[in-house]
Each structure stands twice: as structure tokens, then as C-alpha cells.
Amino acid sequence: MDYVLETQGLTKQYKKFTALRNLCMHVPKGAIYGLVGRNGAGKTTLIRLVCGLQFPTEGTFALWGTEYRDAKINLMRQRMGAVVETPSLFPYMTARGNLEQQYRVLGLPNFNGIDELLALVGLSDTGKKKAEHFSLGMRQRLAIAVALCGNPDFLVLDEPINGLDPQGIVEVRELILKLNRERNITFLISSHILDELARIATHYGFVDRGRIVREMSAEELQNACRKCVSMTVTNTEALARELERRQIDYTVTGPDTVDIYAQLNITQLAVALWEEKCEILSCSEQDENLEGFFLSLVGGESHE
């Protein structure tokens, strides 16, 4: 698999505080990678390192296979854009002025793409209004437009919907999906608003106390969070035979437990199993969402 970003043993230490510990993650090309973790888990530190704002204490990371110590990393960085924490804008400039400034920083020969970018983020009609008078949602969208200057292949967004109203959240979500589908831009998005992330992410990295505790695709997460009936029985082989006879999807998860992915008539199943001398010891319905899955991974206790 082609990875846009890979990290190996990434560690960042601030005096006595270790923000990242031996962190390993993989962002596949074309993915919307959701970085999930509570406040202080290390998400923003990771993003700062990837964006070249800070330096790792140990470990390494690579962008499109080029390690960060390699001189060519600056060429790779030209293919990325980012919004780290707050939108990085000149408040006394207009939306167009901010984009023109970023075009100059990138050394683009003309300002031809600016109108298209403004239209893309819905800021075409802001005219001479300065960025300092924009709403938070408008500033966030302008910051994304600045990050999109130069047509990057990889966009890093740190808490892109923090502080946005419902309308703003929908707009940013639609924009991310549009860019991913139409321009095949890979996204790395950090957020602790899990429901929102669950709507767009194709891959997840769960961060806790500076470590990636698990990486998985949205499909794997969906399976992990799939609604099921978890049954404990005395004979799993008998239960498996009965479920196959009824063409019901299931997974044997332990020596005496089976997860069954269907609406069941428990009485009929119990009668059938009794004929096979198999007893049902317990039966419970499981319905986990991303939030529940995250909590089950990192535990519910406070880390602060």
C-alpha cells in the first residue's frame, strides 16, 4: 500500500513531559485519516512535527517515502497544506489578500486560481471585508483555502470543526468529502468530536497518552462496532452448525462465545440447540459506536 505519511517510533519530549511516545502510524494515499484522541493525547504535537513546526526528539517520519531528515523533504512538503489549531491568517487582509499572500509564498506565477478557491470554500462574495471581521466558520474555510493554494495532495487539518455552528460543521464536512472525491486529496484530520469524524473518515488512528493504540479502516471499525447478539454457550460447534443451517452471519470470539449478526428468534434457536445438547448460558445485545469503541480502547478514566 502507498502511504502518504508513515511514522516510526516518533517521540517528542518537552523537558519532563513526554507528548509522544514511540508513535507509529500509517496514512494511506487517498484516505481521510481520522486521528482520534482526547485533549492532551498528542494529536496536535504529532501534527506540528509532521508540518515541520517542531522537531522529533526520537524516531522518524516520512512523507511519500521521504524521511524528514532527507534534504528532499522540503520538496515533499510543497505537496501538502495544513491548518494547525487556529486559522493562520493576516487579520487585516481580505480573503483574496490572504490567498494572494500565500500564492506569493508558494511562488505561483499568477493569481488565476484564487477565484476558484474562493468559490470552492464559499467566500466569493466577501469583497473588501477583512479577515478579522469574519465569523469563525468563515475564517476556518479561508484557512482551508490558504492550505489548498498550490493544489496539495495531502491536507492536514487540526480540529477543523472546533467552535463551528451546525451549519459551519456541515459546510466543512461537505468540503472535505468533495476535495477527497474530486481531487483525491489525502486528509489527516484530528478531532475529538467523534460522531462528526465517523461521517467522513475512511481510516482511524486512536491516540492515547502519546501512542497510537490502534489503527484500523472504517470497514474494520464498522465490523467492530456492528450490532450483534453475543451468546455464551456450552458448545460453540453446535451453535455454529445451527447458525450455518439458518444462513446467519456470526463470529466465534472465544472458546464459549459467539457474536451473531442478525435479529434472532431466541426461543427457536434455544429449542434447536437443546436438541444438540447445547445450553445457552448468557445472551446480550451489543451496539457500539465510535465513541464506545474509543472508550473501550483507551479506558474511561481521566488522564489529566
Binding site: L53, R77, M80, Q102, V105, L106
Partner: peptide
């Protein structure tokens, strides 16, 4: 101003030394 409004990030992110 570049440090304050974070505009310096826009230079470093796109690969300027």
C-alpha cells in the same frame, strides 16, 4: 505578526527552509 497570527506556519508547512 507572523508569529502571532500563525502565518509563519504557512511558510514552513509548504517546505521553506
Amino acid at each position: 505578526a507572523e508569529f502571532g497570527n500563525g502565518a509563519i506556519r504557512n511558510k514552513l508547512i509548504v517546505g521553506h527552509r
